[in-house]
Write a protein that binds this DNA or RNA. Sequence first.
DNA 1: AACGAGGTTTAAATCGTTTTAGTTTTCTAA
DNA 2: TTAGAAAACTAAAACGATTTAAACCTCGTT
Lengths: 345, 345
Amino acid sequence: MSKKRGTSLDDIAKSLGVSRALVSLVLNGKGESHGIAPHTREKVFERARELNYRPNQFARGLRLGKSSTLGLIVSDISNPFYSHISRYLEDLSEGNGYNLITCSSDENPEKEMRIIDMLKSRNVDGLIVSTSQNTPVPFLNLKAEGFPVVLIDRHFEGQNICSVTVENFEGAKNAVNHLLQMGYRSPVALAISPTHISTINNRIEGYKTALKEASLGARIFEVEFAKRNERVDSILEMLFVTNQFPDSIFAMNNALAASVLAKLRGMGISIPSEVGVVSFDNLDYFSIMHPGITAVAQPIKSICMAAFQLLTNQIDGMVHSTQNCIVSLPVDLIVRESTLLNRKF
Amino acid sequence: MSKKRGTSLDDIAKSLGVSRALVSLVLNGKGESHGIAPHTREKVFERARELNYRPNQFARGLRLGKSSTLGLIVSDISNPFYSHISRYLEDLSEGNGYNLITCSSDENPEKEMRIIDMLKSRNVDGLIVSTSQNTPVPFLNLKAEGFPVVLIDRHFEGQNICSVTVENFEGAKNAVNHLLQMGYRSPVALAISPTHISTINNRIEGYKTALKEASLGARIFEVEFAKRNERVDSILEMLFVTNQFPDSIFAMNNALAASVLAKLRGMGISIPSEVGVVSFDNLDYFSIMHPGITAVAQPIKSICMAAFQLLTNQIDGMVHSTQNCIVSLPVDLIVRESTLLNRKF
DNA sequence: AACGAGGTTTAAATCGTTTTAGTTTTCTAA
DNA sequence: TTAGAAAACTAAAACGATTTAAACCTCGTT
C-alpha cells in the first residue's frame, strides 16, 4: 500500500548530482539555448529514460496555468453522432498534444453548467460544446473572461460566439423537397424539443419553407428527448386512429428516426410504399437496412476539424479579431429506398 | 489576453482577514471538527459563494496525490458497445465524485501503452481497460506498484488481475446451438483478430464445442479489425463462388455483424431463408431491421457497475485479498427473425 | 594579478491546496 | 492569581515543475 509517486525531476537531478532546474531545462528542449553542455544533456536524457520519467501534469499545470486538456460536452456520448464527433476530436487532440475529456449533459442546461464549472476547475484549456442553454449569456461570460470556447452543432443567432454548424435550413428544405419530388404530399415533421435550439429551429424552418413553396400544409410534432420512444409511439398511433396518417415522415435527428423506424415496424406499416421516411443525420445502419433509409448526412470530420482549428486558434491567441469564427458546413442528402414512393421492398 | 487564474483560497482568506488554512478547513467540511467558530464558518462559505470559488484541481491533486479522475481505455469509442460503456461509467463516475477520461486504442498495444503512460502522468486514480495486449505483464506491473486497474471485456487466463467479462464461451455455444436447433447445418464463424484476445478465443471455443457435440465441422475465418469490411467482402465472395456458402453465419462481434449484413445485402442474399445470421453483441438497430437480427446481448450496465465497484474498492484500499475480483456475467440470447430457417421476410 | 567574457549551472520563488504542529487567546477551577 | 484546559486560529512545509536572475568556473588578455 505504498503511495508511490512516480519518478520526479528531483530524482533525476539527485541521481546525477545536478540541479533540477537543469534537468527541467534539458527535458523541455531548452538545454541548448540555455547553454547546457551537450554531454550533460545526454546524461539527463539517458537517466530520464532509465527511470521512466513522466512529468507530473499536476505540478506542470499548476505552474504553467494550463493543462493541455480540452473538454467536450455533448448531450449524450452514446448517440452515434456524438460518439463519432468524440472519436475524431480525440484523434485530433492526441495528434496535437492535447487530451480530451468528454461529458454528457443530457440536454440539461443546469447539468451542462455544472460540467463547465468542473471542467474549468480542472483547468481545461478550452471547451467544445454542443450546448443546450437557451441563452448565450454563459458563453458570452466565458468569452469575456477570455476562456476559449467553440460551439458545435448549435449556435446563437446574432451573437459573435465561435461556432461550427451545418446548413440545417438548406438540408431540411432539400430533404423535404426530395420527398415532394418523389410524389409525397403530406410529410409530417418530428422535432426534438426544446425547439429553441438553433439546429432544430433551423430544420423546422427548412421544412416549413419547402412546404410553403409547394402550397402544402405543415404538421410538426415536438418530442422531448428523454421520452422520445413513448412520444413517437403515441403520436404515430394517434395519427393512425384519427385517419390523419401522413404519407411521409421527416425525422429531425437520428434518435427520432430510430424511434420512428421501430414504431413503424411495430405497426406493420411498410416503407416506402405506405410511408416515406427521411432522417436528418445519417446512421451506419441506414445503408444496411432493407429498405435503406434516405438521410441528410453531416460532414462529421469537417465539423471536428473546423472546431478544433477554431479552438486551438483561440488558445494560442492566434485570433485576428477580423476573422470570422462562425462556420457553417454543407450537408449531403443521401437518397436510399425509404423515399421511393410506390416501390415495394 | 489576461491570463486569469480564478479566485484562490488566498483571495478568500485575505478578503476575510483570516488564514488560508482556515478557509481550506472550512470549505472541506472539516471546520467543525477543527473547532472553527460557526460564525467564521458562515462567513467563509458566504464569501466563497460570492467570489464563485472553485478549487484548483491541479493544486489539490498535486498536494493530495490523487485526481478524482478515472481513465477508460477502449479500442474505439465510436463503437456502440463501447460508447454505451463509456456513458454508464461516466454516470457512475459523476455520481461518485469522479471524472472520466475515455481514450481509444484502436486495438493497438503500443498505443494502449502510450495512453496508459499519459493517463498515469495525469494522475488518474484508476484505470478501466479493454486491453489489446497479448501479455498480462503490463498489468502485472501496474498491480505490483499498487496502481488500481480493472480489465473489462477481456482478461488473462490464470492471472489474478481484476476483470469483468461475460460468459463468452457459453454465449457463443448457445448461439450456435440455437442455429443448429433451427435446422442450420453449416454455420461459419467470423472472428476478429488477433484471436489471442480472451474474449474472441472463448467465443471461438464455444462455437467449436457446439459443432463438435453435433458432430459437425467448424469453419472459422479471422478478420483484422481495421480491414473488416474488405475482408468480410472477400470471404463471403470466395465462399459463394467456390460453392461453399454456409447456411448460417456467426459474427463474433457487432462490427463484424455490420459488415456481414452490409455485404449480404449487397450480394442480394436474403436472411434467414438463404442464410441465417446471429451476432455476438446486440445493437439497437437489430430490433428495427427487417428481419430482426438474433443476437447475444451483453449486460452492459452490469458490466459497468461491477467494474466501477471493483475499481473504487481498489482505490479506497477496501480490497480483502481473499475476495475474488474476477467477475463473469451471464449473457442473453435474443432470438429474432434472422435465424428462423425457411421463413421468408 | 586582475579583469572580463563566455560557458555552465544553480538558488529560489512561484503556482494553490492540504495538513501538522503549533500559538494565541479566553475561560474555568483551585 | 494562576495553572491548565479548551477554543479558535495560524505558520509553514509539502507536492513537482518552470523560470529568472544570479553565481560560479575557466580562460585568455592586459
